[in-house]
Amino acid sequence: MRIGELADRAGTTTRTLRYYESRGLLPARRGGNGYRTYDEADLRALRQIRTLQDFGFDLEETRPFVECLRAGHPEGDSCPASLAVYRSKLSELDALIDELTAVRAKVGAQLERAEQAVVALAAQEPAPRCELGPRQEEE
Score class of each variant (00 low, 15 high):
R2P: 00
G4N: 13
E5N: 05
A7E: 10
D8S: 07
A10S: 06
A10H: 01
G11L: 05
G11Y: 03
T12H: 06
T14D: 13
T14P: 09
T14Y: 08
R15T: 15
R23P: 04
R23D: 02
R23F: 09
G24L: 09
L25F: 01
L25A: 02
L25H: 01
L26M: 08
P27K: 00
P27G: 01
A28E: 08
R29Q: 11
R30Q: 11
R30P: 04
R30H: 14
R30A: 14
G32R: 12
N33W: 07
G34K: 03
G34D: 06
G34A: 08
G34C: 05
Y35S: 03
T37R: 05
Y38N: 03
D39V: 07
D39M: 02
A41D: 11
D42Y: 02
D42T: 11
L43Y: 08
L43Q: 05
R44I: 09
A45T: 01
R47I: 05
R47W: 12
Q48D: 06
Q48N: 08
T51C: 09
L52A: 12
L52P: 01
L52I: 15
Q53K: 12
Q53W: 13
D54E: 13
D58S: 08
D58Q: 04
D58E: 11
D58R: 09
L59F: 07
L59C: 01
R63C: 04
C68M: 03
L69E: 03
R70P: 03
A71H: 09
A71G: 10
P74F: 04
D77G: 13
S78K: 07
P80F: 04
Y86S: 09
R87C: 15
R87E: 15
S88M: 06
K89Q: 15
K89D: 12
A95G: 13
E99K: 09
R104T: 14
R104S: 08
A105T: 10
K106L: 12
V107T: 13
E112L: 02
A117C: 13
V118K: 04
V118M: 08
A120S: 10
A122K: 09
Q124V: 15
P126T: 01
P126R: 02
A127F: 05
P128H: 00
E131S: 05
P134Q: 12
E137L: 15
E138R: 00
E139I: 15
